[in-house]
Design a protein around this nucleic acid. Structure first.
Lengths: 115, 115
DNA sequence: CGATTGGTTAAGCATACCCTTAAGTATCAC
DNA sequence: GTGATACTTAAGGGTATGCTTAACCAATCG
């Protein structure tokens, strides 16, 4: 759990590029070799490889080479961590709104009694 | 809904920085003026302002100036969109694993009959 | 009023990011 | 072995990012 902030840095950064998100989308439908991931992208193969490197460094993708083909798979556990971070902030915000609502309601009741 | 990819670019990019996430965390507990957001950060005020600009451009934060103080609030709707994108990919992946499990199970049953 | 507080703009700079082309390695097909 | 396939590495370049300091409003305070 050491320095999970840097982990989140890498994960969100990895997701902040359309080419890398396209790769993640493709991989969410199942494992794929590098060339399959690169083919739809409007860039050279080395460029696609670099994106893949970013995804792997972020822990979003794992890959294994067999023969001359490297097969990539999605690692959803790290995806979950990014999701959880966002969710926790959103929930915190909603709780706060709830508490605010309760408070306003209590003021209203006070007003009923006072008035 | 035009060009929502660029929206996701901006959102994930905005979240990919610890200073900006710290601001979001602070704002999830309620609105705050610029100086409150900047104070805990290890950087100059103009630097913090630039981060705030990134968060606003991403639609994650709204702000309004009254007198000489600008009050910032979290906009969770855009936060939800980032969350949803991640969730959809993760769910797709899990469905695929489920289907794969079903398939393997059916093979097993075939095996039982064949054996 | 003049000083302070809270924010903003401008300019500059080091580094990181994303892409390219060129060249190299390792497998597989014949 | 020769050629094609599937990556991989290396080098370089344009642009974006993240920070700095200095200077500049505009509300408030005394």
């Amino acid at each position: 759990m050491l320095n999970q902030s840097a982990d989140l840095d890498r994960m969100f950064h990895a997701l902040a590029d359309p080419a890398r998100r396209a790769m993640v989308e493709r991989l969410s439908r199942g494992p794929a070799p590098v060339s399959d991931l690169a083919r739809p992208l409007p860039m050279s193969l080395p460029a696609a490889m670099q994106h893949l490197g970013v995804l792997e460094a972020a822990g979003l993708v794992r890959s294994e080479k067999v023969g001359r083909v490297r097969t990539c798979t999605l690692d959803t556990s790290s995806l979950s961590r990014a999701e959880r971070w966002i969710n926790e902030r959103r929930i915190e915000w909603e709780h706060r709104l709830d508490r605010l609502g309760e408070y306003l309601k209590s003021l209203e009741s006070e007003g009923d009694r006072d008035d």
